[in-house]
């Protein structure tokens, strides 16, 4: 019963955010917030380092799915997305293998949470369809950038590129951890 009381509260939070949300395709494409670039870039790097690029195909539709799931995830979607992104960045840095479908589940979860966070937990109803398209495209671009760059570099300089990707992942992990703690401490919205 108490759990049910949270649902309207989470949904009610949406209209308060609505005026901050982009409402055109151009704005949707351009206003990808800095804190949400981190999980998407980290996810892309994890896929590039682990060599599981086919998982990108599953992560792309997870972003619009996140728009739909946003009201159920609520306004803490950004914290959850940052946490999932941090896990991706640490995996990319260490190169640790995950059992079974671990990488796939993490990739889908991160993309879904990032999608939800892109609407600030307000969900797809609070935004114009064109803006949602812009956001989805920007998110997909951010997610695909590290694998595309990584593949090109790995093909030409396999060893230095692998080291470079892992060093880049460690920087993303460091920035992600700081962004997460800044969100908890208050300075980041």
């Amino acid at each position: 019963m108490r759990r049910a009381a949270w649902l309207p509260l989470a949904l009610a939070a949406a209209p308060a955010w609505a005026h901050d949300l982009p409402q055109t395709f151009g704005k949707g494409l351009a206003v990808l917030p800095g804190p949400l670039l981190l999980p998407l870039l980290s996810l892309g790097l994890m896929l590039a380092v682990s060599g599981r690029l086919r998982l990108l195909a599953g992560a792309v539709p997870a972003i619009p799915l996140g728009f739909v799931a946003a009201p159920w995830i609520g306004i803490n979607a950004d914290i959850l997305a940052l946490g999932a992104g941090l896990a991706c960045a640490i995996l990319a840095t260490t190169g640790l293998p995950l059992a079974g479908t671990g990488h796939g589940a993490l990739a889908l979860g991160t993309a879904l949470l990032a999608g939800a966070a892109l609407t600030h937990g307000a969900g797809w109803l609070a935004m114009e369809l064109s803006a949602l398209l812009g956001l989805a495209l920007a998110g997909t671009g951010a997610m695909a950038l590290p694998p595309v760059l990584g593949l090109a570099l790995l093909a030409r300089w396999p060893v230095p590129a692998r080291i470079g990707l892992r060093i880049g992942a460690s920087w993303l992990a460091a920035i992600g951890a700081l962004a997460l703690s800044l969100t908890f401490a208050g300075p980041l919205p």
Partner: peptide, 10 residues
């Protein structure tokens, strides 16, 4: 270094 530095930053 950056991984542990971030812990110090936190």
């Amino acid at each position: 270094f950056p991984l542990v530095m971030a812990t110090g930053g936190v």
